[in-house]
Amino acid sequence: MLLALCLLLLAWLAPNTQELTGYVGPDGAYGRMEMTNRTQLHWRQTLRWGVAVGCLLALCFMSLSHVSEFLYFQF
């Protein structure tokens, strides 16, 4: 429950990928948009961001496979 609440807060309050990268799409695709500028967290081509993105990518790789367990009867 607590985890779900945290994830909801993350989904509602954290910047989305467009805000992080400042991407507005090809001209005309989304029209003129208002930049709310609610976060100071902007992706930059820096060492810190490189490491952070690398770690996230590694976590994605680590989550790709699962090692299932099996209980037959109560064994």
């Binding site: 060492l47 490189g50 490491v51 952070a52 993105v53 690398g54 770690c55 990518l57 590694a58 976590l59 790789f61 680590m62």
Partner: peptide, 11 residues
């Protein structure tokens, strides 16, 4: 290269 290195180090 930094991203790739970070992936490699963590994995």
């Amino acid at each position: 290269a930094v991203v790739a290195a970070s992936v490699a180090v963590l994995l």
